[in-house]
């Protein structure tokens, strides 16, 4: 492994970790999505260094689309759309920090005491061809199962997110949550039986 590769690895690794951490520190939801994208791109580039061109670039490609969609949903559903007001939306904060650190320390400890095999991938291995042969050869059942699972996911997503359901419209009688616990619903209240009869659609 050359020095350049090593340096590139540490730069990408730092980028992945720092931007992953900043995801949960930024006020803006759009920034959060794209910081996560930066983390994924850095990991994709590390995969390229590890000799997995297809997986690395496919990660960048897939995550580009996913995080774009993520940003759209963020803006759609957040109370603070553009994320220009400072806000902290966390609960059980101390516990979460503890759990995160515990997970890291635990995994790192397991990793440091385990003796892993040292068997690097051959530099002339045709990894992309291998992957293709594996996907549509011996592991075809697994690959096809993943495909069918994705199809089922699409159907389930449409059912879950559709407005009309078996028991009437999903948003019937829904009110915004209160700004303080037990308070009045936030935002504009629906007009109670107004006599105007104007309905703007």
């Amino acid at each position: 492994m050359s020095v350049v590769d090593d340096m590139a690895f540490w730069i990408f690794a730092l980028t992945a970790i720092v931007s992953g951490w900043r995801v949960f520190c930024t006020d803006s939801m759009v920034r959060a999505s794209f910081l996560l994208l930066a983390s994924f791109i850095a990991v994709g580039l590390i995969m390229l260094l590890l000799g997995a061109p297809y997986l690395g670039i496919a990660t960048i490609f897939m995550m580009g689309v996913e995080m774009m969609v993520m940003a759209l949903f963020m803006v759609m559903y957040m109370m603070n759309p553009a994320g220009l007001n400072p806000m902290v939306m966390v609960h059980q904060h101390r516990f979460s920090i503890g759990a995160g650190i515990a997970a890291f320390v635990g995994l790192a400890a397991v990793m440091l005491v385990t003796d892993f095999a040292d068997n690097p991938v051959a530099s002339d291995a045709r990894v992309v061809t291998d992957l293709g042969k594996e996907l549509l050869g011996d592991s075809m059942l697994i690959f096809e199962t993943a495909g069918v699972t994705l199809l089922a996911t699409m159907v389930a997503s449409v059912i879950l997110s559709s407005r009309s359901g078996r028991f009437g419209p999903a948003d019937e009688g829904s009110v915004p949550p209160p700004l303080e616990p037990g308070g009045q619903p936030a935002g504009r209240l629906p007009e109670e039986g107004g006599g105007h009869g104007h309905h703007h659609h």
Binding site: A16, I17, G20, W21, V23, F24, M29, A32, S39, V43, M70, F73, M74, Y77, M78, M89, V90, H91, Q92, H93, F95, S96, I97, A99, G100, I101, A103, F104, L107
Partner: peptide, 17 residues
């Protein structure tokens, strides 16, 4: 990355976060 992700999953109030 897993540690930070676990922290985020447990601490964030917003579903998307």
């Amino acid at each position: 990355l897993i540690g930070i992700g676990l922290y985020g999953t447990l601490s964030q109030q917003s579903f998307v976060m």
